[in-house]
Design a protein around this nucleic acid. Structure first.
Lengths: 202, 202
DNA sequence: CCTACCGATCGGTAGG
DNA sequence: CCTACCGATCGGTAGG
């Protein structure tokens, strides 16, 4: 049960546009124009605008899994894996074009004060991501890579810095912002250095 | 040359709505319904939707100046003043309702990938705020409150944490998020403690 | 500050 | 996947 090629084209474009302008500003007409299709042709693949938004979120989840999560699983559990995810996110952001983290920065900010199924899906996705960060931190503590600390607090700080790396890069057209995020995260981790603190690449 | 009472009512409501949903989702019709006015009655005060957006930004600037900047000027220059601004922003966020920082978190994220006069105004405002943070950090270093460090890097980190305090509070309905931001900022400042590091209240 | 409009665009539907 | 529509709403204008 594969997704059709046209539907993939629509989702790629929807992902691109909503990474820049959000899922509320996404319109079926704009999407159709970009893809040189009719509005009904786009609409028919999803049935409603909300279904299109939810499908775009699922598409973004798949890209995030493929581009960020899975590659980082190659690194050892705990701190090396956490650091691999942080470098993947900030490295991606240092290149041109659109990448895994941008969609989520835009969309979480767009929906943080809204209600409804789209918001709920966004929140659930990000909660899963935060739990993943906290688990890696907890594992890092258990493995004595890190000094004991509050995983939720450290995860909050890392997520804050990752978000700001992408956001401030865009707002100020400052290509150094992702590197600032990485520098700050690395410094914070080294401050919590435990006896088995691993070497952090890059 | 005072602003009319009706115009103030419109701007208060526009500020409230755009703090939640952004300045692009703001519509003259919705504003008119909320205020039990006609669309033309709202429109006439500004002349265009863009002028309404820019006027709402100016309104938000005034509130930020009155509620955050000016009160903090009572604290001594350098670190105490920087800390006063951080506590003001996170304290406001801990109460219910809408406050100074929320508008800017929403709107900077909304416009970071857009173009045009509204985006330019938002960017200029935030650049001024970042410069203010950097100046307070530089003063703190000169006064030996802080160890020498890169003011732009530290300002980036503080702004990242302040943003995330408001944003994650809303996204996860987590009232502890602003306190996490404050804890992280305080920890970062104490890490950079200089010989004349002041006592940080609260 | 209002009523009464305008053309454009929105999400969505009928029918093929 | 298309053309040809629908009612609702958008920003904006005329005229008072």
């Amino acid at each position: 049960m594969e997704t059709g090629a046209t539907k993939q084209r629509i989702l790629d474009r929807a992902f691109h546009l909503s990474s820049l302008y959000g899922l509320e500003a996404l319109t079926i007409g704009r999407l159709a124009d970009d893809l040189r299709m009719s509005k009904a042709g786009v609409h028919g693949h999803f049935g409603s605008k909300q279904a299109l938004q939810l499908a775009t979120i699922r598409h973004a989840q798949q890209l995030f899994l493929r581009n960020i999560i899975t590659p980082s699983e190659a690194a050892p559990d705990g701190l090396p894996r956490l650091w691999a995810m942080c470098t993947a996110l900030t490295a991606y952001s240092m290149e041109t074009g659109l990448h895994g983290g941008d969609f989520w920065v835009t969309v979480t900010n767009e929906y943080d004060s809204r209600t409804g199924p789209v918001r709920d899906t966004v929140e659930a996705t990000m909660s899963g991501w935060m739990r993943r960060l906290e688990d890696l931190i907890s594992t890092g503590i258990e493995l004595r890579q890190l000094t004991p600390c509050d995983p939720a607090q450290l995860a909050f700080e890392i997520q804050a810095l990752l978000d700001a790396g992408g956001h401030q890069r865009d707002l100020y057209h400052d290509p150094k912002a992702p590197a600032r995020a990485r520098t700050a995260i690395r410094g914070r981790l080294e401050e919590l250095r435990g006896p088995r603190f691993p070497k952090l690449t890059e």
